[in-house]
Amino acid sequence: MEWLHRNSRRHRPPIPHVSRDIPLVVADVRAEADDVVSLRLVAPDGAPLPAWHPGAHLDVLLPSGRLRQYSLCGDPGDHRSYRIAVRRIADGGGGSREIHDEIRTGGRITARGPRNAFPFVTAPRYLFVAGGIGITPILPMARLAAARGADWRLVHTGRTPESLPFSDELRALDPDRVWIRPDTEYGIPTSGADLLEQAPEDAVVYCCGPIPMITAVRLALPGARASALHWERFSAPPVVDGRPFTVELARTGRVLRVPADRSALEVIADQVPGTAYSCRQGFCGTCRVRVLSGQVDHRDRVLTDAERGEHMTICVSRASGHLVVDL
């Protein structure tokens, strides 16, 4: 048996490389709000695309080489196209500006996924809370809740009516269940308690938007009628229980100090423009680097235990003392 096993491996064909890339053509670019455009993406040959569920996103590889995550905000039942929406961030990392300024109908991009880090659970009652572009993962959830006959409410808040995308689509679901709440019409941003007042009894809350809004909802939850909260943010989370450490970039010998309230990615990117990153939340793996020495405090949601033996994600993971990485 041992002889047969050895020789069977010798003649086994090599495992082929499986590409996870999905080539896509931009079928339509559409203005949805101030500084927000949506892209409808299709396969070059019109073939069906991989299925997805509400809360899913695409890893989008732009022509420049930048990799970014964008929530799918179209219809999961449409297997021939994807829709994403992007707000221009003038002082961001350049991905949104590239889409707004350079991507046109007929252009080509590459996607990976769909992947879901914000899964939609089945429940009898929901409250959906979205801030600005945070409506993108929420919109398909509200559609599905309505289709299932659930008791649901939705609040979409932002600076001005003109800054809020997909308002017409939201109102078309059920105007009595949707509250479009621009700050300019009320004078001040809404509070977490005000947002949660809209929740049906024992509702599951889905919240996506800027960190202050999510924080306000989280703090107000214990006094609300809602029973559970799921949230997703589009920006880097604050560092929790951070301690300062140093990181040495082995290729140059440069030693950088990482303060308790900043990530290694932020500090490294200040000194090494072009450092690869995308989600800044530890789930995509774009910023993964090889660790040459040091003790890592792993805080990601993407690396396996075996991978953590040699790598770390510098967007969220930290270290004790001195760390040397292959950069």
Rank of each mutant, 00 (worst) to 15 (best):
P44V: 07
P54W: 05
G92V: 12
F245K: 04
R6V: 15
A150Q: 11
R83Q: 12
G282Y: 06
V121D: 06
R9C: 09
R257L: 09
P200Y: 07
D194S: 15
G106Q: 07
P13G: 06
P212Q: 05
V205S: 05
L292S: 13
T160N: 11
A306T: 10
H322F: 08
R159M: 07
V29P: 08
G55W: 02
P124M: 00
V291S: 04
Y126H: 08
C287F: 10
A33G: 12
P63N: 11
L256M: 02
R12L: 14
A111S: 00
T184Q: 13
T286E: 12
I211K: 10
V204M: 10
R177I: 11
V29T: 15
D28K: 15
L49S: 07
V255E: 10
I99Y: 06
G192C: 10
T110M: 14
G46E: 04
A269V: 09
A33V: 01
V18Y: 08
G187W: 02
R112N: 08
A56M: 12
W152F: 04
P210S: 08
G285L: 00
G107E: 01
V240H: 13
V240C: 08
R171M: 13
G107T: 08
L41I: 06
C207M: 13
A319I: 00
Q295L: 14
V291E: 03
R290P: 03
D300G: 09
R112D: 01
M1C: 11
T136R: 09
L196V: 07
G187N: 00
T215S: 11
D28H: 12
A199Y: 01
Y126T: 08
T246P: 05
G131C: 11
D297P: 01
A123G: 08
L219I: 10
R290S: 14
A85M: 10
I314D: 03
A90H: 10
R299Q: 13
S293Y: 05
R30L: 10
V205E: 04
Y277S: 11
G131A: 13
L39G: 11
L58I: 03
I211S: 13
V272M: 09
